[in-house]
């Protein structure tokens, strides 16, 4: 598998930095963002293959980031990783196109497995046109 880019988005800075450090692997490059706005800025500078996204964040919340990502960057696979989601949130996230919905804390091995599946899913599907200027 070639190297793929993952963007981790969570306002729990220590959590997301530590997770990013643990995800330093030969076939994976991880970046971090600490709120929705920053995540969209990072995406504008370089589109990731997969985004791991918390739902409850100050400012633009995760659900809105997901909505914008699927609208403007439909090829990016978004995995929700939250400690606060309800069944209703999960249904809504999946309806908006989230690749998977995980609860915090997650086992690293499971997260890596889902990340690889998400990347493979991206590679297996015909690419859609990104409309990043509007995001």
């Amino acid at each position: 598998m070639e190297k793929f880019k993952v963007l981790l988005v969570d306002d729990e800075e220590v959590f997301v930095r530590t997770l990013s450090e643990r995800l330093q692997m030969p076939d994976l490059e991880s970046q971090t963002a600490f709120d929705g706005e920053q995540a969209l800025e990072v995406v504008r500078d370089g589109i990731p293959d997969v985004m791991v996204l918390d739902l409850k964040m100050p400012g633009i919340d995760g659900m809105e980031v997901l909505r914008r990502m699927k609208k403007h960057y439909p090829n990016v696979q978004v995995i929700i990783l939250t400690g606060q989601g309800s069944d209703k949130d999960e249904a809504e996230a999946r309806r908006l196109g989230a690749f998977d919905y995980l609860q915090k804390p997650v086992n690293l091995e499971h997260l890596i497995e889902v990340l690889k599946r998400a990347y493979q899913n991206k590679m297996d599907r015909p690419l859609k046109t990104d409309t990043f200027s509007e995001a």
Partner: peptide
């Protein structure tokens, strides 16, 4: 849960 997630990753 957020606290536990951070402890777990650390």
């Amino acid at each position: 849960k957020n606290v536990l997630a951070t402890i777990k990753e650390s």
